[in-house]
Every structure is written in C-alpha cells, then in structure tokens.
Design a protein around this nucleic acid. Structure first.
Lengths: 257, 257
DNA sequence: ACAAAAGTGTTTTTTATACACCCATGC
DNA sequence: GCATGGGTGTATAAAAAACACTTTTGT
C-alpha cells in the first residue's frame, strides 16, 4: 500500500476544544490486536477458502470477522498469531507470516466511546494451511467456517480490506516462493501441485505440460518412484520437495509461474 | 520474514512469580513507534544512502538510529511517519510505504525497567527520496547524516535488522515497480535511470544497451526530444515517465530488470 | 475398447545476453 | 581529432507458450 505525497504531513484535527493542541502532542495508548487471514485450498472443488469466525461480542456482534485476539503481556506478535490460530483450528503444517499493520485512528469503533481513550491497532498475519487435515475447533456457541474467497459475507471492521491484501500476498508468494510445499503432503503428485496453483492463480497461468517441465528442469522435485493410483487414469508418480536443492534458487524471481 | 511451525504456539514465560499466569492473560499496554528507513541514491558517487540520526535521549543516548517517533493521539501511523520525515528532511518528492512491524517483548530496553509496564512496538516505514534536492534539517544539537549502506555504524535497538529488511524491499521494488520515477526529476535521461538501478542493484543486473531497449519496448517512457548536454559526450534525450501507459503493466512481474 | 489421467515431445515465438559498432559533443 | 558518453543493431542462446501425441490405468 504505497503512498505519494509532495507537501507537508496531514494532521487530523478532531474538534475545536481548547486543549486540542495539547492532546495532539500526547502519546496515544494502544491496544494491539492480531488478525489472521487463514487460507486453505480445496483442490477438489477448486476453491480458495478463508477462515472466518462469528463475533461473540460488541462491536460487530454477530458479524463474520477474521479470527483475532489482543496481544497479552509478555507475548510476541507472532505468538499471539499462533495462539489465536491454535484456538480455532488444528493443523500439522502451516505457513505463517506478517502481512500489514492497520492503524488509522477510528478504525475500531471502540475508540469513539471515550474520545481520547485507547487506540486499537491491528497487526495482520497471513497463514496457509492444509485443507484436508485442518480440523476446525467448534467451542459450542461460536460460529466458525471456511468461506470461499469469491463468496465472502460482509465483514466486521476493515477485515475485507485485510483479506484482499492477504489474497494479493498469497498469489505473489506462490509465484516466487515454495509456500505450496508447506501445505502439500510430504509426497504429492505433480497434478496436486498444479491444481493448487490453478485454484489460487486461475487456469490461465500456464498449461499442465509446461508447468511440469519447467518445474522438473529446476531439479528440486525428487521423483520417489512410488506411484499413486487415484481412480481412473494412469497412476502418478509421487514427488517430494528437496529443500536443499532449492536453496540456490531461493532468491531468484519467478521460479514457479 | 516467514516462519514455520508444526507444533503448538510457544508462550514466553518470564519468571516464577505466582501471579504469572494471571499476568499473561492481561492485555499488554503499548506505545507505538514509527521508524523510517529513508533511502536516497547518490548516483555521482554510486552509493546508496540511509538517513540516520543521533539519539538525544536514553536509551541508547549518543548512538546512531533510524529517525523515529512515538505515535500521538489522533495521528495515523502514516501521518506519524510523514511527521518524523518532515522534521528531519525537506523534500519535494518521496515514496513512502509501510515495511514491517517489529514487536517482540523486550526489543526495547525501556520495557525492562518496570517488569509489567508498557510494551514498545515499532512500525517501520520505508522511504525513497531524491538525493539532490533533499535538505537535511539540522536543529542545532542533533546529529543527522546520510550513511552509505555499506558503511553503517552500530545502531540502536534492532535498527540494523530493520535497515536490512528495508534494503531488501527496495531492491524488490525497483525490479517490479516504477518507484524510480518517484525519485527522479520529471525529465531524466536513460543513463540517470540506469545509474540509479546499478547503484542499488549492482552492476551485474544488465548492461546499459539491453536495459535501454527493454524499457523502450515497454512504451511507457516518452522521449521529449529535448537534449541534455552534461559536459563531454553526446547529449542525451530527456524522457518522461508516462503513468497512463504504465497502467496495464502495473501487475506484471519483472518489468524492469 | 475406451475414457481418464499422467507423462513426453516438438514447433514457434518471445525474451535475455553479449557484444560490436555508429553518433554527437567538449576540449 | 580523439576521448567521452549516448544510442543502434545483430547474432546467439534460452525461455515461454501452444499443442499434438503416447502411456498406463480403471471400468
């Protein structure tokens, strides 16, 4: 989210009270929240999914939102992201990285209640988990569900914006980094990999044959020789990702598309 | 800064006091700081520079650090980034974007003074300014200086890490986005552009002739016909960046290198 | 036998890379 | 006139894109 400006910084004035200037110079007190954009890919139905939870409290009670939490004493941002994730979902593999920090004043309606009260800041994290093994944790009352990216409901706060930003990051990650293997089984077929890519990037990025030969030429996918038969059709070879062989390529751009 | 994990989240315990558990569940109080990694490119000396300021107070008094500030009441993160930038430097053009949020507990020694006091969180911003027109604002006492990226002094806090991260982002930005034009004069020669690229990316990314023909083929650089004579040698054509013509390319990867 | 899925190969087009060379100016 | 920086072109190699075809399975 770049930004251009050519003049002076723009102060946001909030009213006409006489102590305004003083208040502006005061440091803001912050609560820091962590919001997770958790993606998974349902390759069978060819859908990219985001995990949403129903809010159990005000503000936005009863609306869908990203799973989030406020950061506790002694807890790192990433630990908070891990915690909220572990509360909602059980997974063996995941990829997690920081996304963006949203912190304009008044992005959280709780700030309005007391005019110079605490500010709420959201550090968003982006996660990718394996759909097949992900178990949602239903704690009785709470609504929790995978929503397809193209059928998102109305969301609390600025969470729609956060998801769009996360979606963007996911697509980029797939193009130049081996995230896919974090979320695929240890042994996978090249079609598994291809389907994951087409589901996220769309069908138009490359045809299977070219995708296949490009990746194999890079030499970091090892053919285990083991065959996997899935219903009709010729059985596919199971491959594994060779992290060591990938090392030298990790700074190169555009390895995947 | 990606992160992998396959087990449960890791809580950081801080001691053996009996109310530990309670404290952990308490929400942390945050001060939010903004730190700017401000780059500029000295094409004459072929150096990439970062703006550093000498700290005037504890902690790290007398050490070099990134220009930073704590966020005030009613001020957005970006406004804080703008403010601190405007306090240190006068520029007509700049590119500014958010970099990363560093927020582990104990990254700021001020947190240690009172064991369960406020936490300090740093939202870093990344800026690129035009070197030739940038005027540093010396407010008497304060030390402020451009440091070449390859001769950085020891820095306060985790600021070295933040700069490395910023450097990484700058190189990527140059490769796939038109940041360079934010920081070049409206009219520039192709050598100006090329020198900016070689200074940041190194000499090895492409030779001038190929760089030139690749960019011109993309049709978003308009030859104004005006010639610029700079000492000896054939006068160069002045070009301008055509933002409209660039539009369709803005999502494409690797337009520049 | 044949449909379905996997895997191979070939052709064409585009892009990258490494150069060699010509052009316009100041001194 | 020649050094200096600007600009053009060409030959070769590599990569991307399109698509035809073969192989191996289940039914």
């Amino acid at each position: 989210m770049p930004h251009r400006l050519s003049s002076a910084p723009n102060r946001q004035r909030k009213g006409n009270r006489s102590d305004d200037y003083c208040d502006e110079l005061k440091l803001a007190d912050f609560r820091v929240g962590v919001d997770n954009v958790i993606f998974s890919v349902d390759t069978d139905l060819k859908r990219l999914l985001v995990l949403l939870v129903m809010r159990q409290e005000e503000p936005f009670l009863g609306q869908w939102s990203l799973p989030g939490t406020l950061v506790r004493n002694g807890e790192s941002l990433e630990a908070a992201a891990d915690r909220i994730l572990a509360e909602k979902i059980r997974v063996q593999n995941l990829y997690l990285e920081q996304l963006y920090t949203f912190g304009g004043p008044m992005r959280d309606p709780r700030e309005a209640e007391v005019s110079y009260g605490v500010r709420y800041l959201s550090v968003s994290y982006f996660a990718l988990v394996r759909y097949s093994e992900a178990e949602l944790i239903a704690d009785g009352v709470s609504g929790i569900a995978w929503y397809p990216m193209n059928q998102l409901p109305e969301l609390a706060f600025d969470h729609s914006k956060i998801i769009q930003y996360g979606h963007c990051r996911l697509r980029n990650k797939l193009e130049y980094s081996p995230v896919a293997f974090e979320v695929l089984p240890d042994l996978f077929t090249l079609s598994d990999l291809y389907q994951l890519y087409t589901t996220v990037l769309g069908e138009h990025f490359s045809d299977y044959s070219n995708f296949r030969s490009r990746l194999l030429k890079l030499k970091f996918l090892q053919d285990t020789g083991v065959k996997a038969s899935r219903g009709a059709g010729r059985p596919a070879s199971l491959y594994k990702f060779d992290a060591e062989a990938f090392e030298p390529l990790k700074d190169k751009a555009l390895v995947f598309i």
